[in-house]
Simulated assay, not measured.
Amino acid sequence: MSANDAATVTHPKRLQNAAALLPGLGLTVIIGAVATGLHELPGMGPLSPLILAILLGMAFNNIVGTPAAAKQGVKFALRRILRFAVMLLGLQLTLAQVESVGLGGLAATLATLGATFFFTLWMGRALGVGRSLSALIASGTSICGASAVIAADAVIGGEDEEVAYAVACVTIFGSISMLLYPILGAAMALSSHTYGLWTGATIHEVAQVVAAAFQGGEAAGHFGTIVKLTRVMMLAPVILALAAFWVREKHHGDPDVAGPEEGAAAQSRWAHIPWFAFGFLALIVVNTLFPLETTAKADTAMVTTFLLAVAVAAMGLETDFRKLLAMGLRPLILGAAAWIFISVTGLGLVTWLS
């Protein structure tokens, strides 16, 4: 077969593959758009488009049913769109934000994040919660809520029901923090600096931090938001560490292989490297050296949130309520334990180090 003949055969096949993605992509985009619109309604601000998108996707799948024709596009959204959107989060951050937090605030934030992550993994083992689900709850609680859950799942490869459960945990307990922190901060007479640092270092979602931090005044609100964004920067190193750990565990105990098998094992390891995490870090550097204008930054943030909502809608479209309920209460107890740990530990470290 000549090169021209091969190109003639390949071109229609590519068009056919692209066309197969359209039903699923169309469905996820519609759900993402509806979730984004609902977020703008009065009283819906604390619920991010990501939370609304996964709820809508789950409702659609369990009431109507995700059509077979949509499956391929849904999987594309789960993989490609998800990784691209996580990478774009880097354009919302700069290295200057880390500097503005100060050494004490940065130390308190990192110590709280690391302690919470490892405590949650340990507690998950003690409660008998699956390794993947424990890691997803640990990521969401310690870093940045639903965004961290879905980013971690990109390297862990957990069940969609596990992702949905982890998102539910960080949403519930982050929302409780959003309502409870202003009351506790006033009762303890925390300064604006300490209160803002506490909210940014411990509350799950960015939107929840903003809502809680500004209850302590404008200074607390701005500082809490900066601290939270600094915490989001830790998404990339944690994801890279998770990827290395998961591959090591997968190959642990395997006998040495040689020849083609060794090559296949190496290829498998390369396949598990989360290249999007390096893209995330690279875009932080780009945004530090060439900062986006205010309007461009707001537009980029809107596009990024929408793409994440599309990816999360895809997760909802593959989530089965029956499997979700079968997981029981143990993961919820784990989420509660992780929430209490990060809240108390974070307050102690913030008070001591800041």
Score class of each variant (00 low, 15 high):
3 A>L: 08
6 A>C: 06
10 T>G: 00
12 P>T: 11
33 A>E: 02
42 P>F: 00
44 M>Q: 08
45 G>Q: 12
54 I>M: 08
56 L>N: 03
61 N>F: 09
63 I>W: 09
63 I>C: 05
64 V>N: 13
65 G>F: 11
65 G>D: 11
67 P>L: 06
68 A>P: 13
72 Q>D: 15
77 A>K: 03
79 R>N: 06
81 I>C: 11
84 F>T: 15
91 L>F: 14
93 L>T: 04
96 A>Q: 11
97 Q>I: 13
97 Q>F: 15
99 E>W: 00
103 L>F: 05
105 G>E: 04
110 L>C: 03
110 L>S: 01
115 A>S: 03
117 F>D: 05
118 F>W: 04
123 M>H: 04
129 V>Y: 11
131 R>Y: 14
133 L>W: 12
133 L>S: 14
134 S>H: 11
134 S>A: 15
140 G>E: 05
143 I>W: 00
143 I>Q: 00
143 I>N: 01
143 I>T: 03
145 G>V: 06
148 A>V: 07
150 I>W: 04
153 D>W: 11
153 D>K: 04
154 A>D: 13
156 I>W: 05
157 G>L: 12
158 G>K: 01
158 G>Q: 14
160 D>F: 14
165 Y>I: 12
165 Y>T: 08
166 A>D: 10
167 V>E: 15
168 A>V: 15
171 T>Q: 08
172 I>V: 12
173 F>P: 04
174 G>P: 03
175 S>A: 04
179 L>T: 09
179 L>D: 10
181 Y>C: 03
181 Y>V: 09
181 Y>T: 11
185 G>L: 06
186 A>S: 12
191 S>W: 15
192 S>P: 14
194 T>A: 11
195 Y>W: 14
196 G>T: 11
199 T>M: 07
200 G>F: 09
209 V>T: 14
214 F>N: 13
218 E>Y: 00
219 A>R: 01
222 H>E: 13
223 F>T: 04
227 V>G: 07
232 V>G: 00
232 V>Y: 00
234 M>C: 09
237 P>A: 05
241 A>T: 14
242 L>W: 00
245 F>L: 07
246 W>E: 08
250 K>R: 08
253 G>H: 07
254 D>H: 09
255 P>W: 07
256 D>M: 14
257 V>I: 08
257 V>M: 12
261 E>C: 00
267 Q>G: 07
268 S>R: 12
272 H>T: 13
279 G>H: 08
280 F>H: 05
286 V>D: 02
287 N>Y: 01
296 A>L: 13
299 D>A: 08
304 T>G: 03
310 V>N: 02
310 V>A: 03
310 V>T: 02
314 A>W: 15
323 K>F: 08
326 A>K: 15
331 P>D: 09
334 L>S: 05
340 I>L: 11
340 I>K: 03
341 F>I: 01
343 S>P: 01
344 V>K: 01
350 V>E: 01
352 W>L: 10
354 S>Y: 03
